[in-house]
Every structure is written in C-alpha cells, then in structure tokens.
Amino acid sequence: MDFSVALLLAQDGVTNGAIYALLSLALVLVFAVTRVIFIPQGEFVAYGALSMAAINAGFLPPTMWLVVTLGIAVAVVESVAALREGATARLPMIVFRNAVLPILAVIAVRYLPLKSLAYPLQVAIALAFVVPLGPQIYRLAFQPVAEATVLLLLIVSVAVHFMLVGLGLYFFGAEGGRTPAFTDGGFTLGPTYVQFQTLWIVGIAALLIAGLALFFERSIYGKALRATAINRTGARLMGISADLAGKLCFTLAALVGAFSGILIAPITTIYYDTGFLIGLKGFVGAIIGGLASYPLAAAGAILVGLLESYSSFYASAYKEVIVFTLIIPVLLWQSLAKHHVDDEDEH
C-alpha cells in the first residue's frame, strides 16, 4: 500500500467515522436518559437516506402514512390518559398535535413539486416525515414500560428494530437508493483527491456534534436531559418528567439518524436493511465510551471508521468481523478495569 492509497483509505475512514460518531453520541444520550439501548438507530439512517432518495426522484415521502398511523395511535393513547385524569380540556390539543398535524402535512406535501424543489427543502421534507417517528415510537413502545429493567427495554428495542426493517422493505422496496452529491466534484490535495461530499459530511457532522455539545452545555433543556441521566428522582422532583426527557432524546436520536442517512446517501448505496450494520458500528463506538462518555464514544467511532476502511483494503470479506471483534478487547479492558455490578432490586 503506498502513501496515496493510505490517505484515500484514511479519508474514507474519517468520513464514515464521522457518521458513526454522530450515531454513537445519540446512542449514549438515549441510553443515559432512558436506559434504552436504541438498536433501531440504524433504521433511521436507512429511512432518512431512502426517503431523501424518493423525494429527490419526485415521489411522495414513503413513510408518511406510518407517521399518520402512529400519530393517530399516540393521539388515542394520550386521550385515554387525559380522560382518566379528568383533563378533558387537553383533548383538542392532543388530537391536533398528534393526528391532525401529520394529516395536514401529508395533504400539503401532495401539492408540492417535490422533484424541482431546492435540495435543502427536500432534506427538510425527508426529515419531516422520518424524525417524528422517534418520539412516536418512544410514546407507544417505551413509555408504557419506562420503569422496566434494561433487559426488557432492550428486547422491546430489538422488536422495534425488527418492525422497522420489515416495514422498510415495504416502504422502500428491495432496491437500494442513492442521491446526488450536495456538491459534485472535488479537488486534488497533494497526493490525494478529496470529494466535496466528504467535506460536507465531515463538516456537517462536526457542526452537529458542536450543536449537540452547545445544547447540553448551554440550554436548560439540554441540562435537564443531563440531569435526568444523572439522577432520575431528582429530575422528576424538579418537574422534569421522564416522559418529556424520553420524547426529547428520541427526537434528537431520530434527527441525528435520519440526517446521517441523508449525508451518506450520495456516497454509498443504502438498502432498507443497511442501517442496522451502520447503527451497530455507532454502537461499537458507544461501547468504547462505556455507554457513558461522549468524547470517548466519538473517538471510538472514528477509530471504527478507520479500522473498517483499512480492513476493507486488506481483507475485504472480513471487514465486518474485524470491526465487531474490536469490542472484545474493549469489553475485556472495561471488565477488568472496574468491577461493575448491577443490582436490579437495589433502589
């Protein structure tokens, strides 16, 4: 391998690593706040990429009826809860926000000339019909068992993943999708050629990470999420409800996932089930961070990207094996470093 190939591989690794980093941050966030190991994270990547591809080709967002269906389900569940508390005044707002709004959005999008819209607007529409799935899934699948064990939440998480993959095939078909680059072309930098899309990906990922950091460091909602992760009882007593925190971080995770998909769709063909492996690589990063440290998770994710890129050169058939084997030394080290015990019955 000569130097220019090494640089090319490094470029590839960092590009993918940036995406994995974004996903790993979302995974750490969701786990810290809700104790859910968010396996379906990768499906949001696929949904984001494939929705974008569909809209770009002038089709209606394929997931729009799922958003509407889940919205109606949320409206029903919330209304029942409100009636039980005798809070009838809240009903119109519940129905409007969860059921009417998505239906209006579906009607509106039908009258838009999707194909000829500006790229950023297409992105916005793709996000508008994927991101709401995050809080909807939290409300329907996780909130009713929010106090259950990590194990039970994990099984629910895997079940949601299964459903989203199955639905993904229905929505997007078995064929892959690819979108045009944000900006075509590239430039030569020393011995290597850099695509503009690579810069877009790394740049936007860095911006998003910085945005997330600002959100957690500066805004009261970000601090509230951190507080929930540190001490759930304390947060609850300050009026930070677990439901709100859960909904908020599932929204963030869905946004990060879908956006990641839109970012990589121009450089990789995405299929309805590719998201899973991409999400899992974010996981490897998150595990390197012990499911707790954001900087370590991001660094771990970049490492995963690089390792994947170089191993695809040396042993392309085994690149997945090599990447997933990486967690063995990491887990071994964590396991020997601290004697962590979990006692579910300890409160």
Partner: peptide, 21 residues
Amino acid sequence: PEKRELFGSMSVADNLLLGAF
C-alpha cells in the same frame, strides 16, 4: 427529599437553574 437527590456531576449553578425548570 431526604436523600437530597442532587445532580452530582453538575455544577452548583446548574443544579439551581434546573430547580427553575
């Protein structure tokens, strides 16, 4: 609460701010 339930790894100021959430 009896156990105080503070946000241990956050600053005193941030703990106070969250009281106003």
